[in-house]
Amino acid sequence: METLLNDFSPGLFAVSTILLLALIALMVKFAWKPILNSLEERETGISNALAAAENARKEMQNLNADNERLLKEARAEREAMMKDARHISDSMIAEAKEDAKEVTSALIEKAQASIQQEKQAALAELKKYVAELSIGIAETVIKKELSSKKDQLALVEEILKEVTLN
């Protein structure tokens, strides 16, 4: 303790107190305050930038997801539309086929009917003609009956010849 007190110089203590007080004040004013402030500023700047980058990344992800969703929807819609169109066209074709079938069958029927009619008409005319012919033949036969048998036969023969010639 004695040597410690003997070594202690009050003058040096006073001088170093003053110098150290001045040094601390000057250092705080000219060095530490600006240094610590700008270090803090830089740190907050860095953390802000990092947070902003993170946000941007998230937003980007969101956007990407949105895009994908939209794309999927569009694709689905297109597929649905294609399906619809195919369906419609199929049904249209089928309908057209049916219609055509109907029309043709109707036509064919009509044609057959008219053919039948024509045939009937022709048959009727033929019958009428045959009847007239037979009546004429009968007339002539009746006219010549009285003369002879021989003449009669010859007449019939003649008429028949005429008929075939017709």
Partner: peptide
């Protein structure tokens, strides 16, 4: 003291 002041005020000025 002067050396420290010199060094660290330099650093402060750089920021």
């Amino acid at each position: 003291g002067f050396l420290l002041l010199f060094w660290f005020s330099r650093l402060a000025k750089q920021y």
